[in-house]
Design a protein around this nucleic acid. Structure first.
Length: 639
RNA sequence: GCCGGAAUAGCUCAGCUGGUAGAGCAACUCACUUGUAAUGAGUAGGUCACGGGUUCGACUCCUGUUUCCGGCACCA
């Protein structure tokens, strides 16, 4: 007999070899049905894995977060078994559960197509109906290597396992897979799933190695859950910034203009201008000075900065004219170093904060380009802060808080904060260990002191230094970098930047690179998805649309209002087209204009307006002055 | 860049196994002159992404290129 301790500290004796499923069944039939797996002394156990010693257990039920992972991981195994039946030559890479489902990487001579997924799915259902048990077996490394002797991927995985790690395999029917486990025990418990897509993926994420075929899918405990998720996927497409950007005439991409080279249309530029003005004001208040430097610079400038050595592959090819070689700038830091260097600086001058609206060009891999999210020409307000060492923390923190301010004002949410560190084994980082350690330690300390949760990311640093990256999740579910604060001890060295200290000696300043809210391109993609194209009034390309009920009778009043609104700095437009009222109203609504004003006799008589807020049915009649005050307040509040 | 898919009117899409293209919306014309999501009638609009091939004949089949889409790698 063994003693099982439950989360509430109650204890009960069971025969050795009892499973989570049996214990759940002992408590209640309902719990048995809802149980998915369990934690046994904090280790994830399959539903049907025998427990052989005294243990504290916790039953995972369908509603627990871990349950979804277990189910999806098990579904990945089911997928692999089905694929193996249909494609006997198939070998497998990894097949984990992910946020919203699972995938499995497959190597086969056959090319699996989108249309084949249906057949694979059918086979999965058939296997599930066979009601096979998923059983665990632990074995020695030697035995494991033997078992997978025809599978180079599994061999590699086994050889890379730590020596003390237990090697386990899971079998269901004829199919056996290397796996750490945490399974649902029986194939027939997997019922509501869908295969979603097929894509290429490099073995172990290494572009120099094999490319496998990756099948993505999602698996749920109920039909309703699956259906709901599929609907979410559908709805995401509706807020795709590429679709909204076209519908609302925000931007245009044209292959004759060049791939990844986005064109801002009037509506898009109207929004961007508001953002530019907003950021300018924010920076001015925070003590930044704005400058302007060229998009073109000498190759030498980028050799000094180190970009030529470390970033060349992301740069457009050089241009030669007379005896000079030029490059299109991918970043603005080198120019800002030059600006700093242009005068003699005193310790009293620091911190110096330079900001610039910069258009930069980067040669991004063609396959990476996507709408406004990844482009080859991008504009942002970039900034570099030149500080003394004793000012680092204060200035990094101030920059971080400025970022928080912008993210809050834009109603965005931070997904998580990354601390990007270097990987000493990778060559892409400059090699001054002392500077690196100093920079990394400083940032870590700061984040800890401020109680900011962060995820360390080894190898993700910029070549010149570590960075704090602020990640947001797009409506499409992608996590992307929104803002960044980077600490740089290298460029001051390379440009020989100095200031005169209180001791009369030359000292080295430190540079903080700061990206506030990404580039206008990326920000626009995020905002379009965030707002579903319905911009808040302060950003909307057109804020007010005035529609006269009758063109002959009410146009004069509409024009008068429009003039007045434009004098108030509102972005107001008149709709004087010879169309029906209903048509114009629909047009204003489909263009997601915040305020739609219909004016007729009632309004003229009382010098009032009747407005309808976008998305709302309610009509409100107020005096013109009241309306102006209300909209002004709303713009001010950024709501 | 890599793996897979796609490309038909300004936009969204139909077009079965080869017989040179169609709808809705938008545009234009005419009539209608309107109180909160599409007035009606008509007109025009296409080297079916581009190049090469197979064929009596190619939007359709083969092939190359370009761009876009789903991922991977890369990244703001």
């Amino acid at each position: 007999m063994i003693q099982i301790t439950f989360p509430d500290d109650s204890k009960k004796k069971y025969k050795e070899g009892i499973t989570i499923e049996e214990i759940a069944g002992d408590i209640s039939p309902g719990l048995k049905k809802a149980s998915v797996a369990g934690y046994v002394n904090d280790a994830l156990y399959d539903l049907n894995r025998p427990i052989i010693e005294d243990a504290t257990i916790q039953i995972i039920t369908k509603n627990d977060k871990a349950a979804f992972e277990v189910l999806n991981h098990s579904t990945a195994h089911l997928l692999a078994q089905a694929v193996k039946r249909l494609y006997p030559d198939a070998t497998f890479g990894v097949g984990p559960a992910i946020d919203e489902g699972f995938y499995y990487d497959i190597n086969t001579e056959s090319v699996i197509k989108e249309e084949d997924l249906e057949e694979i799915e059918k086979m999965m259902h058939r296997i599930a109906e066979e009601q096979t048990e998923m059983t665990r077996k632990e074995l020695s490394k030697e035995a494991a290597l033997n078992l997978f002797e025809d599978d180079k991927y599994k061999q590699e995985l086994i050889n890379d396992l730590p020596e003390d790690e237990t090697i386990s395999v899971y079998s269901q029917g004829e199919f056996t897979d290397l796996c750490r486990g945490g399974h649902i025990g029986y194939t027939h418990k997997i019922r509501h799933f869908k295969l979603l897509s097929i894509a290429g993926a490099y073995w172990r994420g290494d572009s120099d190695r094999d490319q496998l075929q990756r099948i993505y899918g999602t698996s749920w405990f109920t039909k309703k859950g699956l259906k709901k998720h599929l609907k979410v996927l559908e709805e995401r497409k509706e807020r795709d910034h590429r679709k909204l950007g076209k519908e609302l005439k925000i931007f245009h991409l044209d292959k004759d203009a060049g791939q990844g080279l986005a064109i801002w249309l009037p509506n898009g530029y109207a929004v961007r201008k508001q953002l530019e003005d907003y950021v300018y004001k924010l920076e001015k208040k925070a003590g930044y000075k704005h400058i302007s430097t060229p998009a073109l610079g000498t190759k030498k400038l980028y050799e000094i900065s180190g970009h030529w050595d470390h970033y060349r592959e992301n740069m457009f090819p050089i241009m030669e004219r007379d005896d000079e070689t030029f490059v299109l700038r991918p970043m603005s830091c080198p120019h800002h170093m030059i600006v700093y260097r242009s005068e003699l600086r005193s310790y009293r001058d620091l911190p110096i904060r330079y900001a610039e609206i910069v258009t930069q060009h980067r040669y991004e891999a063609s396959g990476a380009l996507s709408g406004l999210e990844r482009v080859r020409a991008m504009t942002l307000t970039d900034a570099h802060l030149f500080v003394r060492k004793d000012q680092i923390k204060e200035e990094v923190l101030a920059a971080y808080n400025l970022i928080l301010q912008a993210i809050t004002d834009l109603k965005l949410e931070i997904e998580y904060v990354e601390l990007a560190l270097r990987d000493k084994d990778k060559g892409k980082f400059h090699d001054n260990d002392k500077l690196w350690d100093m920079a990394e330690t400083t940032l870590k300390e700061l984040l800890d002191e401020e109680n900011i949760d962060y995820t360390p990311m080894t190898g993700e640093a910029a070549f010149y230094g570590p960075k704090i990256d602020i990640q947001v999740r797009t409506a499409m579910g992608h996590v992307i970098t929104m803002s960044t604060v980077q600490l740089d001890f290298l460029l001051p060295e390379r440009f020989d930047l100095t200031y005169i200290g209180s001791d009369g000696e030359k000292h080295r300043p430190v540079v903080i690179h700061r990206g506030l809210i990404s580039t206008w391109e990326r920000l626009m993609s995020i905002l379009l998805e965030q707002y579903k194209g319905a911009f808040p009034t302060w950003l909307a390309p057109v804020q007010l649309k005035i529609i006269p009920v009758n063109l002959e009778l009410h146009s004069d009043y509409a024009k008068k209002l429009n003039d007045q609104f434009i004098d108030e700095d509102f972005r107001s437009e008149l709709d004087l087209r010879e169309e029906k009222l209903g048509y114009k109203i629909r047009d204003a609504q489909t263009n997601k204009i915040p305020y739609q004003l219909v004016v007729g006799d009632n309004e003229i008589d009382a010098n009032k307006v009747t407005y309808r807020k976008y998305g709302k049915k309610k009509q409100t009649t107020v005096s013109v002055d009241e309306f102006i005050a209300m909209v002004k307040q709303e713009i001010k509040d950024k709501t």
